[in-house]
Amino acid sequence: MEYPWTILFFFISLALSIVAALISTIILEAYRRRFNHGHIEAPAIFEDPNSLKRVPCPSIFDPAEKYMSLIVPAFNEEYRLRGALEETINYLQQRAAKDKSFSYEVIIIDDGSVDGTKGVAFNFVRKYSVENVRVILLGRNHGKGEAIRKGMLHSRGELLLMLDADGATKITDLEKLENQIHAVAVVKKEGSRDPSIRISDIPITAFGSRAHLEEKALATRKWYRNFLMKGFHLVVLLTAGPGIRDTQCGFKMFTRSAARKLFTNIRLKSPDACRR
């Protein structure tokens, strides 16, 4: 009878250790951010390949100038980026032609690529103008998290969508996230005393998910990857609570207010990412 209790005690101890470690990490990181100002960075820039001029990027604190910004981080994506951008921009142009109130921008963040990613991105700027397609150059590889953060902080949209450069998600699926955000915004507006409130002023996020494909993925992935995935899900369960099934899908939409709160308070740099 002692064996089951030993196993139970082990898992309880493991869970408590993980929670304690996470809490300690959060406290230490909060302390570091409060008293360390070494993260202050030089302003980001984007380039207009037609005029060859570098222009300061807008700020997430500025009023929105577009309805939607699409943030595309890219690191050595020379061969996949072209197809993904063509599909994305074709959809955006068709939608803009049908709805004159719809405006957009696509922001490609070149995360220190060493292949032809930069050239592919600038070809789209030349084709569709710097008003609709912009490229932010990070100079060296900082990691995907920092690339997304840069794009978010220098976007102009009321709604901001992050998506991967490989086109793994159908671009038309953004309407599902958009509809969910609008549904929540309607409720928020009804409860607000300010009739002039805009959707960009309400902090809302909508996350895409591939959880419905989990059974198929489990059958094709190696056993150790499934083991690591289940372990990560356990950590998410312990830290964030039940109900969150997919945190890794790179297809997420934020209102401008939500992005301002989230991406001005995170530091996701990866100093050694260039060695991957």
Rank of each mutant, 00 (worst) to 15 (best):
P4Y: 01
T6V: 11
I7M: 11
L8R: 05
L8V: 10
F11A: 05
S13T: 15
A21Q: 06
L22C: 11
T25H: 13
I26A: 07
L28H: 11
R32C: 06
R32D: 13
R33N: 13
R33P: 02
H37L: 08
I40N: 11
I45G: 00
E47H: 06
S51I: 07
S51D: 02
R54Q: 11
V55C: 05
P58E: 05
S59T: 08
S59Y: 01
K66R: 15
K66F: 07
M68G: 00
L70R: 03
I71V: 15
V72K: 03
A74N: 02
Y79A: 09
R80I: 10
L81R: 01
R82E: 15
A84C: 12
A84Q: 08
L85D: 08
L85A: 09
L85C: 09
E87H: 13
Y91T: 03
L92W: 02
K100M: 06
F102P: 00
S103C: 07
E105A: 05
E105F: 04
V106N: 03
S113K: 04
S113C: 01
G116S: 09
K118R: 13
V120Y: 09
V120P: 03
A121F: 07
A121C: 02
V125H: 01
R126L: 11
Y128W: 11
E131I: 08
V133G: 04
V135W: 09
L137M: 10
R140V: 09
R140T: 14
R140I: 09
H142L: 05
G143I: 07
A147N: 09
R149K: 15
K150G: 00
G151Y: 12
S155C: 14
R156L: 06
L159G: 00
L160A: 03
M162I: 13
M162H: 11
M162P: 00
L163M: 15
D164M: 01
K170P: 01
I171W: 12
E175D: 07
K176Y: 02
Q180R: 14
H182S: 10
H182N: 12
A183N: 10
A183D: 14
V184E: 14
V186K: 11
V186S: 10
V186F: 03
K188W: 02
K189T: 15
G191S: 06
R193T: 14
S196K: 11
I197T: 15
I202H: 03
I202D: 02
I202P: 03
P203E: 09
I204K: 04
I204C: 07
T205M: 13
T205Q: 11
A206M: 05
G208F: 01
E214Y: 14
K216N: 06
A219D: 14
Y224Q: 14
Y224N: 10
N226H: 13
F227P: 00
F227N: 01
L228V: 10
K230F: 10
G231A: 08
F232E: 11
H233I: 04
V235M: 08
V236H: 01
L237V: 03
L237A: 06
G241S: 08
R245S: 13
R245Q: 12
T247Q: 06
C249M: 10
G250H: 02
K252P: 00
M253D: 04
M253V: 03
R256E: 00
R256L: 00
R256F: 01
R256S: 00
A258E: 08
F263R: 04
R267M: 13
R276A: 15
R276N: 12
